[in-house]
Design a protein around this nucleic acid. Structure first.
Lengths: 147, 147
DNA sequence: TGATTTTAGTTTACATGTAAATTAGATGTC
DNA sequence: GACATCTAATTTACATGTAAACTAAAATCA
């Protein structure tokens, strides 16, 4: 059949780019046997250990429900452990294990992805691109039902 | 706690934008009780009915495994039906039901999303943005392990 | 023609995301 | 202090994506 063409959709373009970027990240992480979702959590802890689940949620943009299970996996892999909080027994703080700390060199993974994504754009273009996308994001989040 | 800042990551920016765009689409579709993933399949069929699973896969970028289950749901909802192919009994063609055809006005959903995404960008900026992102996508897909 | 390889689609196991219900522990107000 | 309300985290049900195994049918080729 003739290939069905797509309409010019910014949403589609963004989704394809995001999927491509995530794919690059997953490829990079595969040898270390951690998923991108797990990396996001670890990357917060590498920068500040002992965050609570709520704080991780705020940082990562993931719901605590999603984190709860992600943290189960990370505990299974012995990369993090949950610790009780004295002052507030509802709260749980997450700490890196030595094994988890040992992967901290992966914190720079996003730079590799950045490099590939931006390889074909000039400095000038990059200077234009970031602010435009940031503005788009601000404008959309202003309208979203989520805040 | 002090909010943990993020590094300047194009991957993160693209992912947040994509999620925002998908959220807008889901909000738009919610009253019709179809998911964005389902819309993608339907949008192909509204433009060309009777595509095979493979063709839908190529169009949508989804694996046939994912489609198989999606099509189960769309059949449950009586929006599409599977039809045997005479020439090749391995192949399955997907047809819209009347009910599925009846939602075809949703084909323009992406324009609504486009409108919101681009609301704060000037015409000039939009003219710059699309080609830059398209170029980025081409460049990444050229390097991806997936082709 | 008969055996081997490809191809189309499905199924299964698993990771992840969402929404809604649940649990336990703070907080606030009278 | 007792009761109502909020909050932190978890659990459950479900949709979706991936990879790998599986099935059936078509194509290849020796």
């Amino acid at each position: 059949m003739t290939t069905l063409p797509y309409p010019r959709s910014m949403g589609r373009l963004l989704t394809m780019l995001s999927e491509a970027a995530c794919g690059l990240a997953e490829d990079y992480l595969r040898p270390y046997e951690i998923s991108l979702a797990q990396w996001v959590v670890l990357s917060a802890l590498w920068r500040r250990d002992g965050l609570s689940v709520s704080e991780l949620s705020e940082y990562s943009g993931k719901k605590t429900a999603a984190l709860s299970r992600l943290l189960d996996r990370l505990e299974d892999k012995e990369l993090v452990r949950r610790a009780a909080v004295e002052d507030d027994k509802r709260s749980v703080k997450i700490h890196l294990t030595e094994k988890g700390q040992g992967l901290s060199h992966l914190a720079d993974m996003y730079k590799h992805v950045n490099g590939v994504l931006l390889a074909d754009l000039s400095e000038t273009e990059q200077e234009q691109l970031f602010p435009m996308l940031e503005r788009m994001l601000d404008s959309v989040e202003g309208k979203s039902k989520k805040r």
